[in-house]
Design a binder for these strands. Structure first.
Lengths: 221, 221
DNA sequence: TCTAAACGGGGACGCCCTCCCCGGTTATTT
DNA sequence: AAATAACCGGGGAGGGCGTCCCCGTTTAGA
């Protein structure tokens, strides 16, 4: 019995994680996301642990250092955002309407919280990160391509333009979160989206960029 | 001799500031502005002093605490931005063109650096601050009113919308400044401005707000 | 019921920021 | 031009805070 290796045993690797351990890990990531959004990536680990309802030791047991936790949160947010993009692609008939829906949904996922994480000690080369970024970029590219093909999106913008502006506009104000700041965010996103519509009302300076360009530029800086 | 009070003595107050002291003060404010833009309001005083080319003691001699230095920098940036607004009002013929010119000029003044300063210990009630804010708001209101009257600006936006979005879009990425991030900023501002143009391409959620509303909301939070 | 993995919180270590002190330097006065 | 006093600069002590470990206790899993 005790040594009966079930067929599922292989998927458990060498040691199996306990059920509450997995649950705690998820709670930590969720709490970290909230704290990062509200106070930035420098928030003390102990505070994150308190928010998650676990001891600080548990946090250090799951994540070796801050960079690892940040990466986990970043990937998590990107994945959630990708899911929103897929929903928008699947459920929305109008091409530009899908883009609008995605943008507002991404704001709700607090994608702007990712911005402060691009600083400091943060391994931008991790494969998990590349995968999450590529997936998200591909989906957003699809959304934009459809709108562009439909003649609803101006032709001089790229994924990088949308994602950077989206991140910036949804970035939380540091310190105490403004009560109804969300309301403003969606107004600004709406205005920005109006600016993205075809026909273009002005000529843009510079050139469009992909997320890959941004990553390289960020590293180079 | 030593006690001979010259006629000009009255204008010198009790003690007269030395020439190099005044120069150092200006250099400190300028350096602080750069450092705040690049690293946020939590940047160490010693670093600011180093950038300014003065000793740290000189910095503490001129500013009692961090809040005082931050306030000085904030007022300085607002004043510079107000000057840009006046120039745009005076020199630009087209109403919306003046607005565009102001927005891009404000970005160059790094007005987005003000955002992180709204957090933490920061006396939002100081008269100098109120004065600078009122002046700037009045000028921007003029710019927007002219464009609105000319039928070039959508009617469902107010000063608060423009200033908050402007601050958000020009906020620097923390950590190492991205080399050609400026190029992106101006692209996004241009897109946002296109969304501000009349006729409105979509309906905005929520309601417009003035800077006064923002201040109260920020305090309330 | 038994075993061991996982948990939790208290506390020491170490870092960094703040602020003061004092010898040297520079602007101003006669 | 010399004297004087205000100002400057760098080094270092003090203090707060975040990180990380240790060990008694709890709880999932068999």
């Amino acid at each position: 019995m005790a040594t009966a290796a079930a067929p599922a045993e292989r998927s458990r690797r060498v040691v199996r994680p306990r059920a509450d351990a997995l649950r705690n890990r998820e709670r930590i990531v969720a709490a970290a996301r909230e704290m990062f959004v509200e106070f930035g990536p420098e928030v003390p680990f102990d505070e994150i642990a308190r928010r998650a309802g676990v001891g600080n030791a548990t946090l250090y047991r799951h994540f070796a250092d801050r960079a690892e936790l940040i990466r986990e949160v970043v990937c998590s947010v990107m994945d959630r955002t990708s899911e929103q993009a897929e929903l928008a692609l699947a459920e929305e008939g109008d091409a530009f309407g899908a883009l609008r829906r995605f943008v507002h949904a991404a704001a709700e996922e607090r994608i702007g919280a990712l911005c402060p994480m691009l600083s400091g000690d943060f391994d931008k080369e991790h494969p998990d990160l590349d995968e999450a970024r590529d997936r998200l970029e591909g989906l957003v590219e699809q959304l934009m391509a459809r709108a562009r093909t439909a003649g609803q999106l101006r032709t001089d913008v790229a994924v990088g333009d949308l994602m950077v502006a989206l991140s910036q506009l949804t970035r939380p104000l540091p310190g105490s979160g403004c009560v109804n700041f969300d309301q403003f965010v969606h107004r600004h996103l709406q205005l920005f989206l109006d600016g993205l519509q075809a026909p273009a009302r002005s000529e843009l300076p510079g050139t469009a960029a992909t997320l890959e360009d941004l990553r390289q530029k960020a590293c180079k800086a």
